[in-house]
Design a protein around this nucleic acid. Structure first.
Length: 305
DNA sequence: AACCGTCCCAACCGCCTCGGA
DNA sequence: CTCCGAGGCGGTTGGGACGGT
């Protein structure tokens, strides 16, 4: 028997959000900043559950969300982070601040899962055939670990690159980044596709304008939250993650990966507080990434105090 | 043109965590 | 210490879009 739903009143509206509702929500958040979701429906007149408002904001209306196709780098990062963290989408999303956990989760379930499965079966097929022809053994654990290590190095590289890109973007705060879909949220942006969504797109453009004004003169609380989110990238969010357990037992890690990141498997507040989590240290370790890691450590510490 | 199957994503549901009373 | 409520998270689903027949 679970807790009754947060909104069990009969008048709660469900289903897709209309542009009008979006505008109501955005102007409320513009005025009061994100948070106190409980009061949003009553104060805005929205017939929506507070959860629904929060979700709509975090997954769609929040400034800085990048929409559309995932880049190869993002894809790689997701794959490697998923291997490290399991299905902890919020934690993974904290490494890709422009993507929402929902987006990442959807992308994983619809694209990457299949892709990996395909690759895996392809790999097994070639392995089986080469074993048959050469009568060779399956690569031993050392070789497997070597490959895994190579993969992880690639992940580190991808993360580093992505972070350096993000840093630049954060510093310039390009207006287009503040609100993704001036183009509708469709991978292929043909004229016909835009036309089909034009009514909504025009509305989102209005919201976009609202948000751009907001970014010029945001309320204090939202400055801190949005800015902190952009600035902290790894540190603040992953701080939260590491404090609540960087890698828990629920994460469906491969035994090999678990062994490699064994250090993180038991969250330890004493060691994680005031420094990057072991995972982050590991990610920034070697390959000349230490400097970047130190930058993040200092940023992280600044945020703590 | 109509139907059908598949894909994809926004949104919902239910459980968990954490902080305050 | 216990209870309660808000917020957060991950899994799941409804339905629109799209492609094939």
């Amino acid at each position: 028997m679970g807790r009754p739903p947060c909104c069990h009143t009969a008048i709660v509206k469900k289903g897709p959000w209309t542009p009008e509702e979006d505008i109501l929500l955005v102007s409320y958040v513009q005025e009061h900043g994100p948070g106190n979701w409980r009061s949003v429906p009553t104060n805005t007149g929205l017939l929506r559950c507070s959860k629904s408002c929060r979700l709509r904001w975090t997954n769609y209306l929040r400034p800085g969300i990048k929409r559309g196709n995932f880049t190869e780098n993002e894809e790689k990062m997701i794959i490697h982070l998923q291997a490290l963290l399991g299905n902890r989408w919020a934690a993974i999303a904290s490494y890709l601040p422009q993507r929402t956990d929902n987006d990442i989760k959807n992308y994983w379930n619809t694209h990457l899962k299949k892709k990996l499965k395909k690759l895996q079966t392809g790999l097994e097929d070639t392995k089986a055939s080469s074993n048959r022809s050469n009568n060779k053994r399956v690569p031993d654990k050392g070789q497997w670990e070597k490959r895994l290590q190579t993969d992880m190095n690639m992940a580190k590289q991808a993360l580093c690159e992505a972070l350096s890109i993000d840093k630049q973007q954060c510093s310039t705060t390009h207006p287009n980044l503040l609100f993704g879909p001036s183009k509708p949220y469709q991978p292929s942006s043909s004229a016909s596709t835009s036309a089909t969504k034009s009514t909504y797109a025009s509305s989102t453009e209005n919201i976009s304008r609202l948000l751009q004004n907001w970014m010029r003169s945001p309320p204090k609380s939202s400055i801190s939250s949005v800015h902190a989110h952009d600035q902290s990238l790894l540190s603040s969010n992953s701080c939260r993650n590491s404090e609540s357990g960087s890698v828990d037992e629920k994460a469906n890690l491969t035994p090999e990966t678990s062994t490699l990141i064994q250090g993180e498997s038991k969250p330890n507040n004493e060691t994680t507080q005031g420094s990057l989590s072991l995972i982050e240290k590991w990610l920034f370790d070697d390959q000349g990434l230490v400097q970047g890691g130190e930058d993040l450590i200092s940023m992280h510490n600044q945020e703590l105090f």
